[in-house]
Each structure stands twice: as C-alpha cells, then as structure tokens.
Nucleic acid binder design. Structure first.
Length: 154
DNA sequence: GCCAACGTTGGC
DNA sequence: GCCAACGTTGGC
C-alpha cells in the first residue's frame, strides 16, 4: 500500500467532474513524463491512496481523497490522432504511455497550497520542493496520515 | 501573462 | 555522451 499525490488541472478534470463520472472514476490519461509513467506502471496498486490535487488554477491545493482502482494499462490517447496527447512513436504492440484508473473516495474542503506550506509536518513533501514539476509524486505515510486526519474535513 | 526550473530533443 | 535550444509546468 502506497500513497500518491496526483495533479489535475480543474479546467480539465476537477474533483467535481470526478464526482460526476461513472463509478466516480477517471482514467488518468495524458501523463507524458517518464518518471510519472513509471510510478503508475511499476509501483501503483489497486487500493493505493491518492491525494487529488488541483494545479495550475486560481486556488491550487488538495481537493479530495481518491484511490487507485486499476493497475496500469496503455493510455488510449496516445493512439488518437485527434488528441493533443497523440504520440506517433507509440504503437499498440509497444505502447509508450500508461495510466491507471482513479476513483473518488471523498471530496474535502480544499487544503490550499498555502496551508500545506504552513505545516512543518509537510515540509519534505515531494510536491512542495522547489522546482518540482512532477504531476505524480509519492507521499509518505506520515504525510498521508497528517493530511487525511488532521487537515481534511475541517 | 510572466518566468524560473526542469525535461526532452537532436546536432555534433 | 555532451549540451544548447526548445518546450512544458505551474505558482504567482
């Protein structure tokens, strides 16, 4: 059992979008970074905890708790010529990009980036490190516990 | 919209 | 295999 923070732009898929999807589940398509891909492909397991993070928006922060609900499988958008995620070097025989499914557990009142930065318990979080741009980062158990029990639901 | 930081690409 | 140029991310 591992824990992750996954960034989504709310203009693309927000926590409310996720809540409205069938089974409250979304395929985490569009990841085009090898490190983030490898996390999904090699390390994620069904049931892993996910902090659903709104990025590149007016109020960045953790918007909900979710979970990994499938193992990794090829990202369909890499084969779709009309998609901005199309990759001409990917084939069905040797796909390049993978995604997992992510299912909503519960929406929470936003834990803003500003709040996250104020808590020394979270100062080592990968996503808060200077220059970090990875859209998927591992979360330590202690960080997960602090966020889900101390910060969520206030 | 700016721009710092980082990842990827491609010529050599 | 180096590294400059370019593209992307994401907070502000």
């Amino acid at each position: 059992m591992r824990y992750w923070l996954m960034k989504s732009e709310p203009g693309d898929v927000s926590i409310d979008d996720l809540a409205g999807f069938k089974n409250q589940t979304v395929a985490w398509y569009g990841v085009r970074n090898y490190q983030a891909r490898n996390f999904m492909r090699d390390q994620m397991q069904v049931g892993d905890g996910v902090l659903f993070y709104h990025s590149n928006c007016k109020e960045p922060g953790i918007a909900g708790i979710a979970q990994v609900s499938s193992s990794a499988y090829p990202d369909a958008t890499q084969f779709n010529k009309k998609s901005k995620y199309f990759d001409e070097k990917a084939t069905h025989e040797t796909p390049r990009w993978f995604n997992v499914d992510v299912q909503l557990v519960k929406k929470i009142s936003l834990i803003s980036l500003d709040i996250m930065r104020r808590h020394p318990e979270l100062e080592n979080m990968r996503t808060l490190q200077r220059g970090n741009r990875l859209s998927i980062t591992p979360v330590e158990l202690s960080e997960w516990k602090f966020i889900t029990t101390k910060l969520a639901g206030k």
